[in-house]
C-alpha cells in the first residue's frame, strides 16, 4: 500500500478482447470482453460455473487463454506466468488464498518478493507486515506463527494484505468476503474503496449482492462463460438475478413472489 499514483483516474488499465478458455471439450470462457479503468471497481457476478474464477486465473497468469488478447496500460501483454502478471502490476487474492501453511505470516506476505534476497531483512519485513495489517485493521495475534494456526478470516486478511504489498495497479479479489465476519467484511469493503480512491482498478467477485452494490461502479454479469450484460449498482435485484440465471422466471423470483403472496394474505 505504499504510494502508487496510477495515472489519471479513468485511464483504461486493462482491456480484454475475445478471451476464450477451453479445458478439453469444455468451454469455460467464450469471447469475454472486459474493461477495467483506473479508480473503478468492477464486480464480476455470475452463478456457480459461470467462469468467474477461470477469468481471474487467466488474468493472474495461472491459466493461459485459448484465444483473445489482453491489453494492459495500452500495450498488448502475454500473461504466461503468475510472475509476469505480478510484475506488470496485477495482483490477485485467490479463492483458495494460496498461502503456504508451513510458513509464518511474514514469510507468506513477502513470498517471492523478499527484501534483501541474500540476507533476508526479517526486521524490516516484520515491521512492514505489522503496518500493513494495521492499515487493514486486521486482528492477527502474531505474525510469527505458521499460517496453519490462523482462522479462515485471518488467512483471508493475510491474503489481501499480500496482494497490496507490491503496489499493484489492478487488484482482483475472488470472493474476498466469503469467510469474513461482519466487521472484517466492512473493513474489506472500506479497503476496496480506499484502494479505488488511490486510482487502482479493482475487480471483485462476490455472490453477495449487497456487498457488490455497496462498492461496485459497474457490475459485469457472466453466464455459462459468456458476457451477459453490464449493470450499474442501482439496477434492481430482479434485473441482476435475471441476468445471472438467464431467465426472468427463476428460483429467486418465484421465492419472492411466494413471499409477497404470503404477506398479502
Amino acid at each position: 500500500m505504499s504510494g502508487n499514483e496510477t495515472g489519471r483516474a479513468g485511464e483504461r488499465l486493462l482491456s480484454l478482447r475475445g478471451i476464450s478458455k477451453k479445458f478439453g471439450a469444455v468451454s469455460a470462457l467464450t469471447d469475454i470482453e472486459l474493461d477495467v479503468h483506473a479508480g473503478e471497481v468492477v464486480a464480476l457476478v455470475g452463478d456457480n460455473g459461470a467462469g468467474k474464477s477461470t477469468l481471474v486465473k487467466v488474468l493472474a497468469g495461472v491459466h493461459q487463454p485459448t484465444a483473445g488478447t489482453v491489453e494492459f496500460m495500452g500495450r498488448e501483454v502475454t500473461l504466461d506466468s503468475p510472475a509476469a502478471a505480478l510484475n506488470l502490476g496485477i495482483a490477485t487474492v485467490f479463492q483458495d488464498l494460496a498461502l503456504c501453511e508451513n510458513l509464518d505470516v511474514v514469510a507468506n506476505l513477502f513470498l517471492g518478493h523478499e527484501m534483501n534476497p541474500w540476507q533476508l531483512d526479517e526486521v524490516q519485513m516484520e515491521v512492514r507486515a505489522w503496518t500493513l495489517l494495521r492499515e487493514l485493521a486486521a486482528r492477527i495475534p502474531s505474525v510469527r506463527e505458521p499460517v496453519a494456526s490462523l482462522s479462515g478470516g485471518q488467512r483471508q486478511t493475510v491474503a489481501i494484505a499480500r496482494s497490496l504489498l507490491l503496489s499493484p495497479k489492478v487488484i482482483m479479489l475472488d470472493e474476498p468476503t466469503a469467510a469474513l465476519g461482519v466487521a472484517q467484511t466492512a473493513e474489506v469493503l472500506n479497503l476496496i474503496e480506499r484502494v479505488r480512491d488511490r486510482g487502482l482498478g479493482v475487480i471483485i467477485i462476490s455472490h453477495n449482492m449487497e456487498d457488490v452494490r455497496a462498492v461496485a461502479d459497474r457490475i459485469v454479469v457472466l453466464r455459462l462463460g459468456r458476457n451477459n450484460g453490464v449493470f450499474t449498482p442501482d439496477a434492481s435485484n430482479h434485473e441482476l438475478v435475471a441476468a445471472i440465471t438467464g431467465a426472468t422466471e427463476n428460483a429467486v423470483s418465484r421465492r419472492e413472489s411466494r413471499k409477497a403472496a404470503e404477506v398479502t394474505e
Binding site: 493472474a60 495461472v62 506466468s81 503468475p82 510472475a83 505480478l86 510484475n87 490477485t92 485467490f94 488464498l97 494460496a98 498461502l99 503456504c100 501453511e101 508451513n102 510458513l103 514469510a107 513470498l111 517471492g112 518478493h113 523478499e114 534476497p117 541474500w118 540476507q119 533476508l120 499480500r162
Partner: peptide
C-alpha cells in the same frame, strides 16, 4: 536467511501457492 531457502520451504509446503506468488 536467503530468498532461495524461503522458496524451498514454500515449494515444499504448497507448490501451487509458491508458483502463484511468482516463485520460479
Amino acid at each position: 536467511r536467503t530468498k532461495w531457502g524461503r522458496s524451498l520451504f514454500a515449494v515444499g509446503g504448497n507448490r501451487e501457492a509458491a508458483r502463484r506468488s511468482g516463485i520460479n
